[in-house]
């Protein structure tokens, strides 16, 4: 037996399958125009509700076709784009805002801190899915709005962690020295605090990413997410419910993709957390 390779130490063998799923989905999303067998919006009324593997006029529907004769696999590949983009952008926006506000709250103390951290408590006390639903209902659905809503609902998670971490670092000698030597507040926060709290923040990111995928799909499922004809897994699944007795594949495959994506993100996220917290 050889010693574990460097890759093996970086990521245990049992996690490779999850990393592979994530990589395949990410690549599919990135290369959608090239890897999708069909355009996601081309309808073919002769090929409606065909089961997986059927061929109609030279087009093979690998995962079947939907009620308008669109190729399900192609729609799912483009759906991966929506899922991953919305999740990545909402994590980015909420993470940036939350981390910044958390650091500012810890650094300035006093009223600023009280107001920010109270707001954190308040937003977190509303069940997240309800808060997301009511804000979408107010703003209206759509790509940008969904990201805005998810960012608004989730920033307090980052703020709480950034706040606690910053408080712990603020009075360390090197931070005090840098202030003493005249560094401005933004410089201290960005150069000295941020690099030292980024680990715990990344743990929140990995936990939140799967949740954001789930939320986007949930909102789309309820008709409050990205609007048709843009293919979103949640919306495809929702439409497929009407054909569950005749064409099970329309509802089953988007859910399967969604489940595999969230599962992989969660499993890898757990690993990241263990590494950051030094448990392995």
């Amino acid at each position: 037996m050889t010693a574990p390779s460097r890759l093996g130490r970086w990521l245990p063998a049992r996690l490779w399958v999850f990393a592979a799923i994530l990589a395949v989905l990410a690549l599919a999303a990135l290369l959608a125009p090239w890897v999708a067998p069909q355009s996601p919006e081309t309808q073919n009324l002769l090929g409606r509700l065909r089961p997986p593997g059927t061929e109609v006029r030279g087009i093979t529907y690998l995962l079947g076709s939907d009620e308008l004769g669109r190729d399900l696999l192609s729609r799912l590949i483009y759906g991966a784009q929506v899922s991953l983009t919305v999740a990545a952008l909402s994590v980015l926006v909420s993470g940036t805002i939350g981390t910044a506000l958390g650091m500012i709250a810890a650094w300035s103390g006093g009223w600023t801190s009280t107001i920010i951290m109270r707001l954190v408590d308040i937003v977190l006390s509303v069940p997240a899915i309800l808060l997301a639903i009511i804000t979408v209902a107010i703003l209206g659905p759509g790509f940008v709005n969904v990201i805005a809503v998810l960012a608004f609902t989730r920033w307090p998670r980052y703020a709480r962690v950034a706040y606690g971490q910053t408080l712990g670092l603020m009075n360390l000698p090197y931070v005090r020295l840098s202030r003493f030597m005249g560094a401005s507040t933004p410089r201290v926060l960005l150069r000295h605090i941020l690099p030292n709290i980024i680990g715990p923040i990344m743990v929140v990111v990995t936990l939140e990413f799967g949740l954001m995928v789930l939320f986007e799909a949930g909102l789309s499922f309820l008709g409050l997410g990205v609007q048709p004809p843009t293919p979103s897994w949640g919306a495809i699944l929702s439409a497929g419910r009407n054909y569950v007795t005749t064409a099970w594949w329309i509802a089953v495959f988007p859910g399967l993709f969604l489940f595999l994506l969230i599962l992989s993100v969660n499993v890898l996220g757990d690993h990241v957390r263990d590494v950051v917290e030094g448990r392995r």
Binding site: L214, A217, G218, F221, G234, L237, S238, G240, R241, V244, A251, V252, P254, G255, L256, L258, F259, I262
Partner: peptide, 8 residues
Amino acid sequence: PTFWSGVL
């Protein structure tokens, strides 16, 4: 996702 397990 509950909306998938529900369909299943």
